Computed example of a mutant assay.
Amino acid sequence: MATGIPLSSECKHVFDQIWRLKQHRYAIFRIENERRIRVEWLGVREAGYEEFLADLCRAGPDQCRYAVYDYAYRQQYQGTTGTRLREKLFLMLWCPSQAQIKDKMLYSSTFAVLKQEFVGVGKCIQATELDDIHRDRVENELCWDRED
Results as ranks from 00 to 15, higher is better:
Val44Ile: 10
Phe29Arg: 02
Thr128Trp: 04
Arg74Ala: 12
Leu7Gln: 03
Val68Phe: 00
Gly48Val: 06
Thr110Tyr: 06
Ala72His: 12
Leu7Trp: 00
Gln23Phe: 00
Ala72Asp: 14
Ser108Met: 09
Ser97Gly: 01
Phe90Glu: 04
Arg36Cys: 01
Ala99Trp: 03
Asp136Gly: 13
Leu91Asn: 03
Met92Thr: 09
Glu32His: 10
Glu50Phe: 03
Val68Met: 01
Trp94Thr: 05
Gln100Met: 12
Leu114Asn: 04
Leu114Arg: 00
Ile133Thr: 08
Asp145Glu: 11
Glu117Lys: 05
Gln100Cys: 11
His134Phe: 08
Cys57Trp: 01
Tyr71Thr: 02
Leu130Ile: 11
Ala2Ile: 07
Leu89Arg: 02
Asn33His: 12
Phe15Ala: 00
Glu129Phe: 12
Leu91Ser: 04
Trp94Gln: 01
Ile125Asp: 04
Pro6Cys: 07
Cys57Thr: 11
Leu42Trp: 09
Asn140Glu: 11
Gly60Asp: 06
Arg30Pro: 00
Leu85Ala: 13
Trp144Ala: 15
Ser97His: 14
Gln78Pro: 07
Val121Met: 03
Phe52Cys: 05
Met1Val: 14
Trp19Glu: 07
Tyr77Gly: 12
Arg58Glu: 12
Asp70Met: 01
Arg45His: 10
Gln63Ser: 08
Asn140Gln: 13
Arg74Cys: 09
Glu10Asp: 12
Thr128Tyr: 04
Tyr77His: 12
Tyr77Phe: 12
Gly4Glu: 05
Cys57Arg: 13
Ala59Thr: 04
Tyr77Cys: 12
Asp55Pro: 01
Gly122Ala: 03
Lys104Leu: 05
Trp19Gln: 07
Trp144Tyr: 10
Lys12Gly: 05
Cys11Ala: 15
Phe118Thr: 00
Val68Ala: 05
Cys57Glu: 09
Ile133Cys: 06
Tyr69Gly: 01
Glu32Ile: 06
Arg25Thr: 08
Arg74Glu: 15
Gln100Leu: 14
Leu42Cys: 09
Glu34Asn: 13
Ala59Phe: 03
Lys104Val: 03
Lys123Val: 06
Asn33Thr: 08
Phe118Asp: 03
Met92Val: 09
Gly60Trp: 07
Asp103His: 12
Lys115Phe: 02
Arg36Thr: 06
Leu7Ile: 15
Cys124Trp: 02
Ala127Leu: 08
Asp136Trp: 07
Val113Lys: 10
Thr3Ser: 11
Arg146Gln: 11
Arg20Gln: 15
Gln75Cys: 14
Trp94Gly: 02
Ser109Cys: 13
Ala99His: 02
Ser109Leu: 10
Ile101Phe: 10
Ile28Asn: 02
Ala67Thr: 03
Arg146Lys: 10
Thr81Glu: 15
Arg36Met: 09
Gly82Asn: 13
Pro6Ala: 04
Lys12Leu: 05
Tyr49Asn: 00
Leu85His: 07
Asp70Pro: 02
Leu53Gly: 07
Arg135Ser: 03
Thr110Ser: 15
Cys143Lys: 14
Arg86Ala: 15
Cys11Glu: 00
Met1Ser: 15
Leu42Thr: 08
Leu93Ser: 03
Leu130Trp: 09
Arg65Ser: 08
Cys11Met: 01
Tyr69Asn: 10
Tyr73Lys: 04
Trp41Ala: 06
Glu87Arg: 15
